[in-house]
Amino acid sequence: MNLYTYASPANFYVLAGKLIPWFSWGAGLLAVWGLYISFFLAPTDFQQSEAYRIIFIHVPAAWMSMFIYLVMAFWGAIGLAFNTRLSFMMARALAPTGALFTFIALWTGALWGKPMWGAWWVWDARLTSELILLFLYVGIIALWAAIDDVRRGDRAGSLLTLIGAINVPIIYFSVKWWNTLHQGSSINLMKAPSMAAIMLQGMLVMAIAAWFYTIAVALVRVRRIILERERQTDWAKAILENE
């Protein structure tokens, strides 16, 4: 038994089935814990009062929106290079959740910007590049939907993902490269976080909850895709009969 065992769809189907409950419950518990910190332990902010609590959703969602895209690009590249079926399935399973998080990041950003900055939306570099990310997600999903042939769809979608990946570093560094209205990042590897410890803790717990949620949802989706594509095989038939 080695790592490659799980690269086969049949084995991965079983493994994913075992992992899903763990990640689902993990996501739920972490979300409860994170929300408890966000609303009951984290104190009022000195300048933004209670409105800052949107950060507990906004920042994890924004992180996930970029991170999921990079993971999709990674799986796409692996699939294109080594022709591994499972990587394409992973990329497909992640996209809708990535789009959801991008939308949430934009939505919560607007609701945060209106009371704090005084505008729902400004066309600064950070906001614009995040909007482009949403368009990219939508385009990739639409391309997959338009191509009936599975193999062609996998490859075409991955190529589009790869060419759009250049947008992610632009989003991330936009607040550094340009003077935007959007504030800089509070978390930075180079310096101490500019947040009170309990606030930081709440944000990180929410971020990990978002991670767990993404993994759980992606695994459920990838299981469906595997079953759909492997329906001709004996093991898939057996699973369908037993379930």
Binding site: I132, F135, L136, G139, A142, L143, A146, I163, G164
Partner: peptide, 9 residues
């Protein structure tokens, strides 16, 4: 579809 894919780029 082409429009949808290319305009963001």
């Amino acid at each position: 579809l082409l429009t949808l894919l290319i305009l963001p780029l």
